[in-house]
Design a protein around this nucleic acid. Structure first.
Lengths: 229, 229
DNA sequence: GCAAGCCATTGATTTACATCAAGCCGGGCG
DNA sequence: CGCCCGGCTTGATGTAAATCAATGGCTTGC
């Protein structure tokens, strides 16, 4: 039941609209890369192997300080890509990547991929669109980390996570990793979650599910407009 | 003595390598946009007018929180561009821009520019390279803000600023804006600068010049390896 | 089924930075 | 000239979140 290369690439927003001829070309250069949970995929400053597209599992992209503190930039799930930027730009990867669940990815090796880009205008345009998304995302993150406090960041994260009809959202991965993504320690993450529960805007579910009870209030909190939580 | 459109575009890393035919095309759609110091160029969420290339002056790109707090993402000087991402991606600008000195820019209006991109593969490849740079830059910033403390951020900023032979570096714009770029209040910025002076790694110069006295030690501080400053 | 480890939660304490509050200094303008 | 105003510095105090420390599940494996 595990997906093949073509299925993974198709499921990926970044490549989903690539045309037949260009797509065939990608297929020819692509190969599968699998990682066991906990294994490192690459380390900061290494040469970039190419573009990865996640088919299943979850990978965490993060920076480390000399102090040992980590910041997770991105939790990459199925349908998402990573290392595209370094692959295309031709510089070393600016962060670390590790699998946090058994993961199956497609790897488009850097050099053939870059050649494809140079020869295929459509593909090129696709990639540009993908990049725009990335930059927008990073600018958003930046604003979050800097301009919002702990509750604000968590509230916004919950709002942006997709919920099912009953308002249930699944927290990805370990809470600790999510905390690091929001620039919190796992302790304050825990306390902050609790504050939202106490304020009655979310309800704790089993394992790592939470239910959004009062979306409107959550939005106010995210904007820092709620008098106090 | 003010530059014309072609000169500005040529001086710009983003466009410097665009070929003759493509360049002519850009010239045809470009127009000059001038801004007096303090005037706002656009506000967050507005429709993106196009790509701006700064010829002279200085513009500040920043986000604002509902609390009123600001974070300056980028101080854009001559030879640099802004709003490229939103222009190409076709979404509203994700931040505010204002001139902090009388500024003369080239504006490449969004729609004709996008058409040029669609029809010109070389231009497209150029833009991709430019984007990679941007993402790399943002990831770096992100890491800075999150993983380093006040001295570390300032130290790294000084190291990355270009200095003349004597180690003099010019702080751009108001100190206040630089502070906001480093995610500090102007008070802590001031104090932090002083700490570095007291530690003997930099020396204060007139107006907004500082001299790097001990580059190696500064590097250690930036990496958080210096036992104490 | 019990021991060994992680992960999460909760509480007590510390700390880096923000905020509040004066002074200071240079420079534009009446 | 002397005034004022904006930007910078410096000091005193406040506070959000980190750190330190203890405990209570859950899993995993013998």
């Amino acid at each position: 039941m595990s997906l093949n290369v073509a299925e993974i690439l198709h499921s990926c927003r970044f490549f989903s609209e690539v045309q037949d001829k260009a797509f065939e070309r990608l297929l020819r250069i692509a190969r599968i890369a699998e990682f066991k949970s906990g294994s490192v995929i690459f380390r900061e400053n290494q040469e970039c192997p190419g573009v990865y597209a996640v088919g299943s599992g979850l990978v965490r992209v993060f920076k480390t300080a000399t102090s040992g503190k980590e910041h997770t930039l991105h939790l990459v799930g199925p349908g998402d890509t990573f290392a595209e930027v370094a692959a295309i730009g031709g510089f070393p990867v600016p962060a670390n990547a590790e699998a946090v669940a058994d993961s199956r990815c497609v790897l488009l090796p850097r050099d053939p991929f870059r050649r494809a880009l140079e020869e295929d205008h459509q593909l090129c345009l696709q990639m540009i669109a993908g990049f725009s998304y990335w930059v927008q995302h990073l600018v958003g993150l930046m604003g979050d980390v800097v301009l919002r406090d702990a509750v604000g960041r968590l509230a916004r994260f919950l709002l942006n996570s997709e919920a099912d009809a009953t308002g249930m959202v699944a927290l990805p991965s370990l809470k600790r990793h999510l905390a690091s993504h929001l620039n919190l320690t796992s302790e304050t993450f825990s306390r902050t979650l609790r504050r939202l529960v106490d304020a009655g805007v979310i309800a704790p579910g089993e394992s790592n599910l939470v239910q959004i009870v009062n979306r409107e209030k959550l939005r106010l909190i995210a904007e820092g407009l709620s008098p106090k939580v």
